[in-house]
Amino acid sequence: MSDFTPDIKAFCCHYTSQQTCAEGTEGLKQDGFPGSVSLFRVPCTGKIQVSTLLQAFEDGADAVYVVGCPVDGCHNVKGSQRAAKRVGAVKQALSELDVEAERIEMFHLERGFHPEFVAVAQEMDKKIKKLGPSPLKGESA
């Protein structure tokens, strides 16, 4: 399992990712952002539907995570709370399919540049490397 490179899809809002992403891919890499994580930026995480998150798994993700504003400090008031609920719905669906629910997570981070943005990516990368490929890819069947 040691040579397994996961496919992790991260959806993050403009506000939590803006400054970090301003450095570009190279800058992110230098900060230690793992190559296994692909970023999808959206204006607000409240816009992300459950179907979008499931589609990411259908497209081959081993894990998916969402980064939105702090629960009480969302730029769009309740966007990140809505996103957290939808992540919760996918967690439930994964459990019903007997798949590890921690393959999807929600993170609430402050806006602006901050090391946590990189830290959560590293956390997911480490966790998924340990978990191995998603059973939803059907490779183990």
Partner: peptide, 15 residues
């Protein structure tokens, strides 16, 4: 849309 996606994932999981 959600159920269709979950059914596809469920089937794929079982190969």
């Amino acid at each position: 849309e959600l159920l269709a996606s979950l059914l596809r994932l469920g089937a794929k999981k079982e190969g």
